[in-house]
Every structure is written in structure tokens, then in C-alpha cells.
């Protein structure tokens, strides 16, 4: 299935720009739609965890992966009205290469009536060797059916 159309992507980018912490991290949505989100975070010396090497702190990468995961859930065809992280597990494979942007690709691969399950992978420029991978469960608030019993618009 195709990604969200350009207008939807523009709306999503505006939405992202309105989220204070996402803006502070410089997050940009690259792809969004059908339960998938790709979001990048530029390298920023303020986010360094190890000053001796310039490697980004795991916390900043976790924040990126959480954001991508939530966006993937919201873009799922089930059309949730909101979502929140229930739990997230992240495995760190290697330090991110200093100076390189980090890209998180998240997939909402299964939903139930009230839970969404995600997988997320974070890479730097060497996309063959992931920096981190995660799995998580998110809440899923579906649109409420109209009181008339008709399908929601």
C-alpha cells in the first residue's frame, strides 16, 4: 500500500513541529503511513553521552525510537485517535558513529481492540549494522462509533 500522500506528510510534519521535545531533538518525519514511520534525528553535540568519543547518549536514541513507534501506531489503518507507550524494550548493539544522524524505522505490526504492538530499528549511515532495536506495546484508543450506530466519518 502506498505511503500517506504528500499532504498528509506535511500535516504530520507540522504536528511533529508542534511537539516541544521532538522539535528540540530536531526530529523529521521521512515516511509515514499504514502503520510505518521513519523519523531521523540529526547529530547534535548536546545529545552526547560519552564526551571522550562524542557518541550519542542511549537516552536520546530511546526518545527517537519511542517517537517513531508512537507515530507508527497513529498511522495504522485502525485510525487510533491517540496512543501512549505501555512498555518498550530496547537492545543496544553498538555505539552510534559520532557525527552521523540516526534514523528510526518503526512498524506497528499487530493491533488488537485496545493494544498496538511495534517493532523499531535504529541505524546510522551504516544501515547494514543497526545501532539498536526495540519492541513495545502501546495503548490504542479507537475512534468512538457515532451514537446513531453509523460508522464514524
Amino acid at each position: 500500500m502506498p505511503d500517506a500522500n504528500p499532504d498528509t506528510l506535511a500535516v504530520a510534519r507540522q504536528f511533529m513541529a508542534a511537539l516541544p521535545h521532538a522539535r528540540e531533538l530536531g526530529l523529521t518525519i521521512i515516511r509515514l503511513g499504514n502503520g510505518h514511520a521513519t523519523i531521523t534525528m540529526p547529530y547534535d553535540p548536546r545529545l552526547v553521552g560519552d564526551p571522550a568519543t562524542g557518541v550519542l547518549h542511549g537516552g536520546a536514541i530511546s526518545a527517537l525510537m519511542d517517537t517513531a513507534s508512537g507515530a507508527a501506531v497513529l498511522s495504522h489503518p485502525a485510525a487510533p485517535v491517540s496512543t501512549a507507550t505501555l512498555d518498550l524494550r530496547i537492545d543496544y548493539f553498538r555505539p552510534a558513529t559520532p557525527g552521523q544522524a540516526i534514523t528510526a524505522r518503526a512498524d506497528c505490526h499487530h493491533v488488537t481492540r485496545s493494544v498496538a504492538f511495534i517493532r523499531v530499528i535504529a541505524t546510522d549511515q551504516d544501515e547494514t549494522r543497526p545501532v539498536a532495536m526495540g519492541t513495545g506495546a502501546f495503548t490504542l484508543d479507537r475512534p468512538r462509533p457515532a451514537a446513531t450506530g453509523k460508522a464514524p466519518a
Binding site: P20, H21, A22, E24, H57, G59, D66
Partner: peptide
């Protein structure tokens, strides 16, 4: 204010919470 994820509620960004715990 820059720790906010969702300005409507407003709630802390889940990533901030994760990062704080990790730190």
C-alpha cells in the same frame, strides 16, 4: 517546557521519561 511531548494534555515526552530513567 521543552520536555513536553504532547502539548494538549500536556504530558512529558515518553522518550524523556525513558532517557531520565536510563540516566
Amino acid at each position: 517546557p521543552m520536555l513536553i511531548g504532547n502539548p494538549v494534555i500536556p504530558a512529558l515526552h515518553g522518550g524523556v521519561t525513558a532517557a531520565f530513567l536510563e540516566v
